[in-house]
Design a protein around this nucleic acid. Sequence first.
DNA 1: TGCTATGTTTTCTTTTTGTTCTCTTTTTTG
DNA 2: CAAAAAAGAGAACAAAAAGAAAACATAGCA
Lengths: 208, 208
Amino acid sequence: MKVITRRQQQVFNYLRDNTDSFSCPPSLAELCVRLGMTSRGSLYKHIMALIEAGLIEPFTGNKQGGIRLTSQAGQEQSKPEQGLPFIGVIAAGKPIEALATVDYMTVPDALKTDKPCYVLQVKGDSMIEAGIFDGDWVVIEQRDCANNGEIVVALIDNAEATLKYLEQGAEQVLLLPANANMTALSYRPEQVVIQGVLVGQMRSYRVH
Amino acid sequence: MKVITRRQQQVFNYLRDNTDSFSCPPSLAELCVRLGMTSRGSLYKHIMALIEAGLIEPFTGNKQGGIRLTSQAGQEQSKPEQGLPFIGVIAAGKPIEALATVDYMTVPDALKTDKPCYVLQVKGDSMIEAGIFDGDWVVIEQRDCANNGEIVVALIDNAEATLKYLEQGAEQVLLLPANANMTALSYRPEQVVIQGVLVGQMRSYRVH
DNA sequence: TGCTATGTTTTCTTTTTGTTCTCTTTTTTG
DNA sequence: CAAAAAAGAGAACAAAAAGAAAACATAGCA
């Protein structure tokens, strides 16, 4: 799959979390205002990149425009109590591996909050002692800050994402795995971006 | 269905949200005033587009004019799709503690099967090393037999229920906890009744 | 009969749209 | 630090959509 740049990921995240606020597929000018840009041409490049990556599909209804997320066709009229978006796979040390087509999971109310949430599948054993196993799904509340002791999705050096306990001080940020075989990692605050906080978890024992 | 343009969507939204404020089906001139337009002809094009799209139908009551929403326009489309019954609490060594009123939880498809399922909340740490913690919810497929190695809800001596790994032989049934501090229990086959098999699990990290 | 209000059609101008282009600025990377 | 990549601004363009305004037909009414 085509690789997505940081800014493009931000644009996609905005679209993912705010589709409800559009009565109809938004125009480039409308999106520019929302995203704080002044140039349609600049935004256009991002949109085209997302389309090539398969995360978005052009609104083909009329010749000229609009955009909508993939797999969300025809959602504008019916008010869908659609589940949470299942974004992709998170494995310690890699970027989040986004799915080609955004899927949706129906999640119990007890496992989500009233803030925007999304679902990731965990790859690896770094949180095994916290009862989070390889293949589990985690429900993440989208936030850019968190409290110490919370389990967060953190983006390190804009390159790799990881699910860890957070312990942040003034001069360093500790990301603690829950696995005796792994060591805690220390970063400078500017290296770490919080992307969300763990609020729910799910596991399937079915043989697929 | 014909695709709607942005402005047409706005007009439709206005009609949908303000249909109550019209004593009788509005005329084009009246709608023009409300929508801040000066040309009936322009509005007429939008109205016709909405009719072609099936979102609106001409008001046939009097010979000349008026508009009304189609039945599908303001649809709510409430899909009941009741969740799984949340039966009660299971704690090793006790009968299942049933709730006074059966609650229902919406559970992701991946965590249930096409057989009848129900939800229990786990009390205790007997399965902690299997990543099943105190307070977790488990999805149980209702069955009266199971395979070795599966995690089952077992009723012992018609008195106490427990959630354990199953290892059954010809002469004895072993129920294995996943907790180094607890010991495996051995029973005669007639003492143990399988009530269901673990197929899903959920945890909430929210502070309630 | 006139008069008015309605829907309907047509012709025009204006605005908005996606799109492409060049250029500068910022960020990332070696 | 320097090169490269990404992001952004802004202008220009063609096509589409939106709008304005006029003209027409019909129905109801005094």
